[in-house]
């Protein structure tokens, strides 16, 4: 089977799978399995016929209506699949770099840690208010939560969200692709990163000399993060499938 035939088969599969709302790993599995099946169907059709287009048409007919298949696939996605998003983060995929994998893992672990910390804090807070215990201890815990939350929840959340949108703008469906949109997302990320970094470091360092130097340092950090974000936006998109043009 040549590349263009395989691409045509991928388009048939992608028409059914792309609209399904499911985790990346589940959709990847659907794509792989359906493509393998469709390729086998096409090959069996080609054993009886030498015309590629006629074989493709028959394979398409045997495969079924993509819109109907989308509906059926969506119904087969369990409600807990959204939790699989966490597993996607923690799974070492073929071709993944170790740095990429551990960065995802660290974000996941710290998100859970932050959630537990926050829950504990909310549990003890009413008691502390009742006892009038709003001293240095509370401030210390609050600062800790702020720093942990910023570094391991707020930054990664913005990072992943913008990376996905940038990825879509650069490598998404042809109609949605726009380099200017990607540039705007990167600039927006920089503008968000800048004050967040600045305030976080100001709380962390807590010195009066933390002025101009901090500003340049946070500028540098937000630029670095935005560039890393560009790299991640490519990594996070399933480019081979995402680049398929689905128009007739």
């Amino acid at each position: 089977m040549n590349d263009s035939t395989e691409r045509e088969l991928m388009v048939i599969v992608e028409r059914a799978v792309r609209p399904v709302r499911a985790s990346v790993s589940r959709k990847r599995r659907m794509r792989e399995e359906l493509l393998e099946h469709l390729a086998a169907v096409f090959e069996s059709e080609m054993e009886q016929n030498t015309d590629i287009q006629a074989g493709m048409e028959r394979a398409r007919r045997r495969f079924g209506d993509p819109a109907k298949l989308t509906e059926e696939l969506q119904q087969a996605v369990p409600w807990w699949d959204r939790a699989n998003y966490i597993c996607d983060i923690a799974r070492l995929e073929p071709g993944d770099s170790l740095i990429h994998f551990f960065a995802r893992l660290a974000v996941m672990v710290m998100t859970i840690f932050f959630a537990v910390m926050l829950a504990l804090w909310l549990v003890v807070l009413p008691a502390w208010i009742a006892e009038g215990k709003f001293g240095r201890e509370t401030l210390f815990v609050a600062t800790g939560i702020w720093i942990v939350g910023m570094f391991f929840v707020v930054f990664p959340f913005i990072f992943i969200s913008v990376a996905k949108r940038t990825g879509r703008a650069l490598y998404g469906e042809p109609g949605q692709r726009s380099k200017w949109l990607a540039v705007r997302w990167i600039l927006a990320a920089m503008l968000v990163f800048l004050p967040l970094f600045f305030w976080t470091f100001a709380i962390f360092i807590n010195t009066s000399g933390w002025g101009v130097a901090a500003f340049w340092f946070t500028c540098f950090l937000s630029l670095t993060f935005s560039l890393i974000l560009l790299y991640f936006s490519r990594q996070s998109s399933d480019a081979q499938w995402a680049n398929l043009e689905l128009e007739n």
Partner: peptide, 8 residues
């Protein structure tokens, strides 16, 4: 419709 096998 062969695709329907997989959702099942």
């Amino acid at each position: 419709k062969e695709g329907s096998l997989y959702p099942a």
